[in-house]
Computed example of a mutant assay.
Amino acid sequence: MTDPNLSLVLASTGLAAVAMVTTATLAGWRGWLALKRQELTLSEPQESPALGNTGTRIELADLKERIRKLEAIAAGVDL
Rank of each mutant, 00 (worst) to 15 (best):
A27K: 11
A27E: 10
G28F: 03
G28A: 04
G28H: 07
G28D: 06
G28K: 06
G28T: 04
G28V: 01
W29H: 10
W29S: 10
W29V: 04
W29Y: 11
W29E: 10
W29Q: 11
W29K: 12
W29L: 08
W29N: 09
R30M: 07
G31Y: 06
G31N: 07
G31C: 01
W32R: 10
W32V: 05
W32M: 08
W32P: 02
L33Y: 08
L33D: 09
L33Q: 12
L33W: 08
L33V: 08
A34C: 01
A34G: 02
A34K: 06
A34E: 12
A34Y: 05
A34L: 05
L35I: 06
L35R: 14
L35P: 02
L35G: 09
L35N: 13
K36D: 07
K36C: 01
K36A: 05
K36N: 04
K36G: 00
K36E: 11
K36F: 03
K36I: 02
R37E: 14
R37G: 03
Q38E: 15
Q38C: 04
Q38R: 09
E39V: 00
E39R: 05
E39A: 01
E39I: 00
E39H: 03
E39W: 04
L40M: 14
L40W: 14
L40G: 13
L40Q: 15
L40K: 15
T41K: 15
T41L: 11
T41Y: 13
T41D: 15
L42D: 15
L42Y: 13
L42F: 12
S43I: 00
S43G: 01
S43L: 05
S43D: 09
S43H: 06
E44L: 10
E44N: 12
E44T: 05
P45S: 07
P45K: 05
P45Q: 07
P45C: 02
Q46V: 01
Q46K: 09
Q46C: 02
E47C: 02
E47L: 09
E47T: 04
E47D: 15
S48N: 13
S48R: 10
S48D: 15
P49R: 02
P49T: 01
P49V: 00
P49Y: 04
A50Y: 08
A50W: 10
A50E: 15
L51H: 10
L51P: 02
L51W: 09
L51N: 10
G52P: 02
G52N: 13
G52V: 05
G52M: 14
N53V: 02
N53S: 11
N53W: 12
T54N: 11
T54Y: 12
T54P: 01
T54S: 10
T54F: 09
G55W: 04
G55C: 01
G55V: 00
G55R: 06
G55Q: 06
G55A: 03
T56D: 12
T56V: 03
T56Q: 13
R57T: 01
R57S: 07
R57Q: 14
I58G: 03
I58C: 03
I58H: 09
I58K: 06
E59W: 12
E59Y: 13
E59Q: 14
E59S: 12
E59V: 01
L60F: 08
L60R: 11
L60D: 14
L60T: 05
L60C: 08
L60W: 09
L60I: 06
A61C: 02
A61L: 03
D62F: 09
D62P: 02
D62S: 13
L63C: 07
L63G: 03
